[in-house]
Every structure is written in C-alpha cells, then in structure tokens.
Write a protein that binds this DNA or RNA. Structure first.
Length: 250
DNA sequence: CGGGCGGCCTGGAGGC
DNA sequence: TGCCTCCAGGCCGCCC
C-alpha cells in the first residue's frame, strides 16, 4: 500500500509522517469502535478514521478520476484504491500503535456499543437517573452509548413515543428499557437498508443507503405522521434540530 | 463537575 | 442569473 495526502487540513492536521508510516504495510483487518473505523495494519499499527459529518471512505479502481475533496488516497497492491473524501473536513485520520488505541483521547471515554452484550436497559437506565438532560441529548452523548447520531436519536424516540425534549431523569424504568431495545432495533434496520444517505453518506462501494426512505420523524417537519393524523414538528435543541410527532410522542 | 453553546468547513436549497 | 442566508449525519473547547 502507498498513501498520498492531498489535503492535510482535517479537523486535526494529518501528521506529515502518516504516508511513510503506512507505506508498504498490509491491511489485515477492518473493524469499528463507535463511529471510528479501525484499519488494522501489520506490525500492530492501527489506522483510525472518523468520517465527521460529510466524510466517505470508499474503495474504487485506481483509474477512477480523482474527485474534488479526495484528501487521502491509499493505493493498494491489487491496483485498487481506498479514498477518504470529505468536503467539510470535519473527519479524523491518524495512525497509532495498537497498545495506545484504548488510551486515545477520542476513544477512551466512549460508552458501551449498543451491540455489546453488556448493553441493556438497566445500563441506560443508570445514566438517566443521574442526568437532568433532555433524552435526545443523552442519546447523542458518546460517553453514554457509543455510535448514535442525530438522525437515529430522533428515530429511536419517535418509535418509542417519547419526546426528544423529555428530561432523562423523569422517564420510567420501563420507558428507558424500551428505548434501549429500540436503539438496537433502529440501528439494525438502518444497517439492513445500508444506512441513511440523507446527504453525503455512501457505503464502501460509494453506493447510496436507503434508510432515509423509511424515516418516520427525522427531516419530516410539516409532513404527516405515518401513524396518526398529526403533523411532524421540529424544534431547535441546542444547535441541532429535533423532530417529533406531537400526538404520538409524550 | 456537568452541561450548554459557538465554532470549525463546504455546499445545497430556498428567498429575493 | 446571482447574491444572500440558513442549514446540515459531529466533535471539541470554552464558559458558566
């Protein structure tokens, strides 16, 4: 593998030593931790990516013309390329030793992954007891549950009938258990539809996802609820929008 | 300390 | 047609 960096100015500057560090190494595994993609290289190095809001990591033939915002291009020995493309440059790309991975500032405080066998209703319930925050904000907190973004936080709450503005500490145990279970249901469904290509998201083959066609509340303000005769509403919560059905969600 | 908010970027949509 | 404003899937740092 050979790596060329065309634009190092991501959220954090790409280390100028990165191409030399990765050069000649073989990819032995690819895995995920929360929203971070971990590319395991030989010699216990891990190449970490975060896609930010507009990033894509795609696998293409080398002959594919380079696009604007293709900031990192890794040319593999089979002639194909891995490209990191990110118009807004909010992403992250670093190489670390395997041993340092868990100590990375970005990873060390992450909460449980919702597909971890340790993740269940009581785990989430314990966080809701000590927080007066709005439940939408709690679901977005990566230190509580790792991997949920604004689209899924809204969809999860839409499907359990809880308003995004509800205060965490006022939810009942039963409600929180239903939310925890719905986190897994919604994420599984979104994965089955290959993700939500609301704007920039594409899979590794640069293909669109389909889950945006199955959203019940997100980005549907002014449209009809799919369950009842009401109209979906939108409120600004912090600097991020929240969407809900005023009659289905209490 | 928990938690709210502004800022980082570019691009697309919509108003005028 | 262009120019302007607003908004966007996330995260960090600053402030109270």
């Amino acid at each position: 593998m050979r790596v060329d960096v065309f634009e190092p100015r991501l959220r954090n500057m790409i280390d100028p030593r990165l191409p030399a560090c990765v050069r000649g190494k073989t990819i032995v595994d690819v895995r995920r931790r929360a929203k971070y993609i971990l590319i395991q290289l030989e010699k216990k190095n891990v190449w970490v990516f975060h896609l930010g809001m507009s990033g894509k990591l795609i696998h293409v033939a080398s002959a594919t013309p380079k696009q604007k915002h293709d900031h990192i291009v890794a040319t593999l020995d089979n002639g194909q390329q891995l490209r990191y493309h990110d118009p807004r440059r909010f992403g992250l790309s670093i190489v670390v030793n395997e041993a340092e991975l868990d100590e990375l500032s970005q990873l060390r405080h992450l909460g449980l992954d919702p597909f971890n066998t340790q993740f269940h209703g009581e785990y989430l319930y314990s966080f809701t007891r000590r927080s007066k925050r709005r439940i939408r904000d709690l679901l977005l907190d990566q230190q509580v549950v790792a991997g949920i973004g604004n689209i899924y936080a809204n969809e999860i709450l839409g499907r359990v009938g809880v308003r995004p503005t509800a205060r965490s500490s006022r939810l009942t145990r039963e409600t929180v258990i239903r939310i925890a279970s719905m986190i897994q249901t919604v994420l599984n469904e979104a994965i089955r539809w290959c993700g939500t290509s609301f704007s920039d998201y594409r899979d590794a083959d640069d293909k669109f996802g389909e889950f945006q066609n199955h959203l019940r509340v997100y980005d549907r303000d002014g449209e009809a609820c799919r369950i009842c005769p009401s109209t979906i509403e939108r409120v600004a919560l912090g600097n991020r929008s929240a969407f809900y059905c005023p009659s289905c969600q209490k």
